[in-house]
Amino acid sequence: MIAALAILLGPQGKVWAAGQWASPSPESALSIPKAQLMQPEELNHLLITRGAQKPLLLDVGFRMLFDESHIPGSEFVGPAARSDGLSALRDRVQPLKRSTFIVIYCGCCPWSHCPNMGPAYHLLQSMGFTHVKALYLPENFEVDWIDKGYLTERGQ
């Protein structure tokens, strides 16, 4: 049943919906261009490499999951699917230079169903940020980050 409901990925990031290829909605993580995705191993490498340019890491997911475990140095902003989360993200980045290297991540649930990454990415894009990457966690934070042995820390 789940397989039947799964969204099929098509060419140029199109999705198969209602019997035709269509562009994903801006709320969907699938609407983020592939060129703007960052693979987990790439971010982990950045974090452990001395002298590498470290991005501003923003968690745009849910509080309880962040408190359990998150990427070291990342800041909790809140779920971008909600208006208060989007406001918090806007407030956090407003004073920053538009060339700031920002990586956003969530990992609450499978990428195609994540309610937060799409809104967060598109907000940053609309604000003029030119160096934004979205951490690509296809299944979730546990499977695609923790299980791979990458860096984590817990707490608020």
Partner: peptide, 24 residues
């Protein structure tokens, strides 16, 4: 740890965890 949803456990009649299903 619940670091991705859904997450389902099956617990047997004796109260022991017998299976874990992480993700979709």
């Amino acid at each position: 740890g619940v670091l991705g949803l859904p997450l389902t456990y099956l617990i047997d009649r004796n109260g022991r965890v017998r299976a874990r299903f992480q993700g979709q």
